[in-house]
Structures are given as C-alpha cells and as structure tokens.
Simulated scan of single mutants.
Amino acid sequence: MASRISSEASLPTQRLLGKVAVVTGGASGIGESIVQLFHRHGAKVVIADIQDDLGSQLHERLGGGSEISTVHCDVTMEDHVRNAVDLAVEKYGTLDIMVNNAGTSGPPCPDIRDFEIPIFEKIFDINVKGVFIGTKHL
C-alpha cells in the first residue's frame, strides 16, 4: 500500500486536464482503472461499455459529475462505437484519447479441438474487430 501512495504522490497532478477520452470496456477491470486514473488526472471520460449498470455505478463512485459520461457500447457494432465517439465530441467538443480496451478471453478450454467456432468468432469480433472499429472512428 505504501508504494502505491508514494508512486501516486510523485505523479504530476491533472496531467490530462482539458483532454477528452473514450474508454471501451470502461465499466470494469482494466478499463475501470483507466477511467479512474484519467479522471484523477483531469480528463473528461466517456465510459463505453455493454455493462450499463456497472458504468453508472462507476460514474456515481467518481462523483456523478458532468466530466464523466456513460454510453451503451457493444464494440462489435459500428454504430455503437460511432455513437460513443459522437457523444464525446458533442458533449465535450473534442476527442483526444481513444482507449480500445474492451476485450474477452472466452471460457477455459484445455483442448483446442473442443473449442467451438461461434465462441472463437465472438472473441475475435470483440478483440480484433472492436479495436478496428474504434480506431476507424477516432
């Protein structure tokens, strides 16, 4: 715990003041940590996630202010990603940072011969197609 506090104390504050970010998969896990860090450093952040309740809860934990927005976003759907980017630009005037964080690993499968193609396709769509779409609309 002490090393975390000392490393945070050595960081310049508000490094992202005036910046606007969209974080896909921002409602939980690594994305949640990115949202918290960006917010702490002064960025306005759009949490783009399929987990609407978790996104809303994170927004409230961060103070519920207008510098955080949430939007339902399935990264495999181009219209959803476009909507998240458009929301950032319409609400905050710009988009400086796009974090294509949404991802999944799928269920454990000790033998690849037993892995089902529809599961692989879903993983590929989220992890590869989702990043492509996010980059396309930046």
Rank of each mutant, 00 (worst) to 15 (best):
R61T: 11
S69E: 15
R61A: 11
E60I: 08
L62T: 00
E67D: 15
I68Y: 00
Q57E: 14
V75W: 05
L62N: 01
A48E: 04
L54I: 06
R61E: 14
E67Q: 12
V71Y: 06
G63L: 06
H59N: 11
H72R: 13
I47A: 04
E60W: 06
G65H: 01
S69Y: 07
T76W: 07
Q51A: 15
G63N: 08
C73T: 12
V75S: 03
G55E: 04
G55S: 06
V71C: 09
G63R: 04
L58R: 00
G63V: 03
D53I: 12
G64M: 05
M77A: 10
G55M: 07
L58D: 02
D52E: 14
Q57I: 13
E67A: 02
V75R: 03
V71H: 11
S56Y: 12
R61C: 07
L62E: 01
C73L: 10
T76E: 03
G63I: 08
S66A: 14
Q51H: 10
I68A: 00
C73W: 09
D74Q: 13
I50S: 08
E78Q: 13
G65Y: 00
L58N: 05
V75D: 02
D74W: 06
S66P: 11
H72Y: 12
G55L: 09
G63H: 03
S66N: 12
D53H: 14
L62I: 01
D74P: 05
L54Q: 13
S69G: 07
V75F: 04
I47G: 02
L54N: 13
L58V: 08
I47F: 07
D52K: 14
L54F: 14
Q57A: 15
E60F: 05
G65I: 02
G64W: 04
L58Y: 02
E60A: 15
I68M: 00
A48K: 02
G64I: 05
G55R: 06
S56C: 06
E78R: 12
D53R: 13
L54W: 10
E78S: 13
E67R: 02
I50Y: 11
T70E: 07
E67K: 02
R61P: 06
L58T: 02
G64V: 03
T70S: 07
E78L: 08
T76M: 10
S56D: 14
G55Y: 04
G64L: 05
S66M: 04
E67M: 02
M77N: 15
R61G: 01
C73N: 08
A48M: 07
L58W: 04
Q57M: 12
D53V: 14
A48L: 01
C73Y: 08
